[in-house]
Simulated scan of single mutants.
Amino acid sequence: MENKMPLFIVTGASGSGKTHVVQQLRAIMPEFNVFDSDQLIAFVGHEWEEIRNIWLRVARDVAQSGRMTILCGTMMPWDVEKCADFACFSHVYYVNLHCGDETREKRLRARDWSEDRIQEHKRFAQALLEIADKDFNPPMPTIDTTEADVARVASQIKDWVLRYA
Rank of each mutant, 00 (worst) to 15 (best):
P6W: 05
D135E: 15
E31H: 11
I131R: 05
Q39A: 06
K134E: 11
E49P: 06
F8R: 00
Y94V: 13
G15R: 11
R107L: 01
H46N: 15
F86K: 00
P30L: 10
I51S: 07
M76A: 04
T74L: 13
Q119A: 13
E147L: 12
L7S: 04
S114D: 08
P30K: 05
S155N: 12
L71D: 08
F35T: 04
G17V: 09
H91A: 08
V161P: 09
I41G: 00
N96Y: 06
E120T: 12
W78G: 10
V95T: 07
D112I: 03
R67Y: 10
L128H: 04
R52I: 15
L97W: 00
L56T: 14
H46M: 07
V153K: 10
V153I: 15
E102T: 14
N53L: 02
A87V: 11
H20S: 12
A13P: 09
I51R: 00
Q156S: 13
A110M: 04
Y93D: 04
H98A: 14
L56A: 03
A87C: 00
A59K: 12
T145Y: 06
Q156W: 00
C88S: 15
E50D: 03
C88Q: 15
K18H: 06
P6L: 04
Q156M: 02
K4W: 06
L97F: 10
C72F: 05
F136Y: 14
T145L: 01
S14V: 06
W160F: 14
S114W: 12
D116Y: 08
F124T: 06
F89L: 10
D133Q: 13
G15T: 15
R163A: 02
W113L: 03
G100F: 10
S14C: 12
K122Y: 06
A59M: 08
V62Y: 05
E31D: 15
D85I: 10
M68N: 12
R67K: 15
R107E: 10
W160M: 07
T19A: 03
K18F: 09
E120W: 11
W48R: 13
T69I: 08
E102S: 13
R26H: 03
M75W: 07
N33F: 10
A42Q: 12
D149T: 06
K82P: 11
D101A: 13
V150D: 00
A165M: 05
E105D: 11
W48M: 09
A148H: 03
I157H: 04
T103Y: 01
A148S: 13
G17I: 02
D135K: 08
V150K: 01
R107P: 14
Q23W: 06
L108T: 02
R123G: 08
V95I: 15
D79Y: 14
Y93S: 07
S37G: 14
I54G: 00
T11M: 03
S65E: 14
I51M: 10
F43M: 11
P30F: 01
I28K: 02
R52N: 11
R57L: 09
D116N: 09
P30G: 02
I157C: 05
F89W: 06
K106L: 10
V21N: 05
Y164Q: 09
R107T: 08
Q156P: 00
L108N: 08
I143W: 00
